[in-house]
């Protein structure tokens, strides 16, 4: 069953690699104009990630500024072993973790709910998850946001970087300093959690 018509899938714009590479070289020479272009390209994406990691809009805006300030100051040490976006998300993730530790507001660890016997433990290949059929209205978006917010920081960071920011497994492994196997495990657990939360809506058990 289709819930309702919603917005089309948002495509995260990715700067042209050649242009980005030239900008990076200029930034290494402390070119403020080039850095401004990098900020323009990534500010909303970094902010989206940080906001969902710490769940406080104002503080997320401040942390996003801190991400770019640190990047600007440390650009001379950016060696290009990882991509620019991986590096930026790594800085963002580290700042989020620091902030959570400092404020001692670690989110409750998510314990996997295996679902009812009727559903079976995993039905993520269910055709209802076909992007063609999955369209979200505002209410459902809130449910998704809440489901993401209720995950542990470990699952949330991997889910956002892979499924929202389109980072590859190895890029996430670099950004979060994790083995690729752990990245895959966490991604699957996060998706399973999201599916468990959204299943009642897809079945029409929850009234819209």
């Amino acid at each position: 069953m289709e819930l309702c018509l919603g917005a089309s899938i948002l495509k995260r714009t990715q700067p042209d690699p050649a242009v980005e590479s030239a900008l990076v070289e200029r930034c290494k020479r402390q070119d403020a104009e080039a850095f401004g272009k990098i900020v323009d390209a990534y500010q909303n994406r970094v902010y989206g990630f940080v906001r969902r990691m710490i769940r406080d809009n104002d503080e997320a805006a401040d942390i996003t500024q801190e991400v770019f300030i640190r990047a600007y100051q440390a650009f001379i040490r950016f060696d290009g072993r990882s991509s620019l976006r991986t590096w930026l998300f790594r800085i963002a993730h580290n700042l989020c973790v620091d902030r959570v530790r400092k404020h001692d507001r670690m989110p409750t660890e998510f314990h996997l709910d295996n679902g009812s016997e009727e559903d079976g433990p995993m039905d993520v290949a269910d055709s209802r998850w076909d992007p063609q059929h999955l369209v979200l209205d505002d209410e459902l978006r809130k449910v998704v946001e809440t489901a993401i917010a209720n995950m542990s920081e470990k699952l949330r960071s991997v889910l956002l970087l892979h499924d929202q920011e389109d980072l590859a497994y190895d890029e996430i492994a670099q950004a979060l300093d994790l083995p690729i196997g752990t990245v895959k495990s966490r991604l699957f657990l996060a998706r399973n959690h999201l599916q468990t939360v959204l299943s009642p809506y897809l079945k029409g058990e929850v009234s819209q």
Partner: peptide, 24 residues
């Protein structure tokens, strides 16, 4: 098996792609 399950769960990704991009 994990790789297979991840491939099958790609549809879940769409729910995140539908989320609005934040604007500063």
């Amino acid at each position: 098996l994990l790789d297979q399950l991840l491939a099958e769960s790609e549809g879940v990704k769409a729910s995140l792609q539908h989320l609005e991009e934040d604007q500063l």
